[in-house]
């Protein structure tokens, strides 16, 4: 009893908020594991949910590095590629390796790469660092295309997803891949959420806000930066595995090009920097935008709106949105969402 009283005194619990959070989490679980597998159509899962989940996870990873730790990276898709090709090779070359272990090993490979390409961050800042992350982008793409070993000597460097199974249970169906994806994303997101609310997470933010000041108050800046690169790349690498194994099923190195890196960067810009929720909102937005634009274009212009025009107008809309968000709402969709919630809340009360 005394202990309880002490705890309560130390941390006043906002019961209403806790209940609300629990309800939200329960609802999320019910939707993710009950409603979606039972009712979602194949199209919804294959074309929207799977890319959404993989991109969200990649965005969570990049957000850790760029949003929380302030190190701009333009090489995210290189780390996705390392994860995807890493998982492919671990699975191919080690007999009977469990899927979870394969994915973790792939993540670790990506983390290793991340640390190597994060090393320049110890000396470089800002643009110089951003440009040097491009080196990762081009180098990885080149190496994967050039050395056949990575793709088991496929002439065009293409890899195909292996048979996916956990504990003998096949996950090759759309629903199975969805369950694999959603579980991975949830587990990793929960870990990231813990991380950013820990002392390490606060170190990240200190390094972002003012590196010199962070050093003065005793934050181990170098270690923090490398840690951010490692964890971020680990997560992006696993996102790459999801992208390759659950969504596309067949990928080539060229699929992990600079445009993909920019796409992930745009997700966190639109969704909101330094916000986990923002990564999901941004990813949802990016996945739905082309579908929405093609419907809208077909409706407005009919046959004139072919895939080329769609591609170009998508670029324009995306570019304009980035600028608009940077000007009008630098905290992205996440902040918009909050404001909307507050407005609804104040009206109802």
């Amino acid at each position: 009893m005394a202990v309880q009283a002490l705890d309560a005194a130390r941390l006043p619990v906002d019961w209403a908020k806790l209940v609300q959070k629990l309800a939200l989490a329960t609802a999320l679980f019910v939707v993710a594991y009950g409603v979606v597998p039972a009712y979602a159509s194949g199209y919804l899962v294959e074309a929207i949910l799977l890319p959404f989940l993989a991109l969200s996870l990649a965005a969570v990873g990049l957000n850790l590095l760029t949003g929380y730790c302030g190190q701009l990276s333009l090489g995210s898709s290189a780390f996705m590629a390392v994860g995807a090709f890493g998982a492919y090779n671990f699975n191919l070359r080690v007999e009977g390796l469990p899927l979870a272990v394969t994915m973790i090993l792939a993540g670790i490979s990506a983390a290793g790469f991340g640390v190597v390409f994060g090393l320049p961050s110890l000396r470089l800042r800002g643009f110089y660092l951003a440009v040097s992350t491009l080196a990762a982008q081009f180098f990885v793409q080149w190496a994967l295309t050039k050395f056949g070993w990575f793709s088991n000597d496929n002439p065009s460097g293409v890899i195909s997803a292996p048979h996916l199974a956990v504990a003998g249970l096949s996950l090759d169906s759309a629903t199975g891949r969805y369950l694999l994806s959603v579980t991975t994303v949830m587990v990793l997101t929960a870990l990231v959420w813990r991380l950013v609310n820990s002392a390490t997470g606060r170190n990240f933010i200190a390094v972002r806000d003012n590196e010199t000041a962070a050093r003065v108050i005793g934050v181990p800046v170098l270690r923090t930066k490398l840690l951010a690169f490692a964890i971020s790349s680990f997560i992006i690498g696993i996102a790459g595995v999801l992208w390759a194994f659950t969504y596309l099923r067949t990928v080539e190195p060229a699929g992990f090009n600079l445009d993909r890196s920019f796409q992930i960067l745009f997700i966190i810009l639109i969704g909101g920097l330094a916000s986990i929720r923002g990564a999901f909102l941004g990813a949802a937005f990016i996945v739905v935008l082309p579908l929405f634009l093609s419907r809208l274009g077909a409706f407005l212009f009919g046959g004139l709106f072919d895939s080329g025009v769609l591609d170009m107008s998508q670029r324009i809309v995306l570019g304009a949105l980035i600028i608009i968000f940077l000007i009008a709402e630098p905290s992205g969709l996440s902040a918009l969402f909050d404001r909307l919630k507050r407005r609804i809340g104040s009206r109802s009360s």
Binding site: L265, V309, I316, G319, I322, I327
Partner: peptide, 27 residues
């Protein structure tokens, strides 16, 4: 509109700008 914002923000704005210009040029 972006005056006095961080150089990184401006850089990302030019990223968006490059998408617009590329798209527009080819459109």
């Amino acid at each position: 509109p972006l005056v006095n914002r961080s150089p990184m923000t401006l850089f990302m704005a030019t990223l968006g700008l490059s998408y617009i210009i590329e798209g527009a040029a080819q459109l």
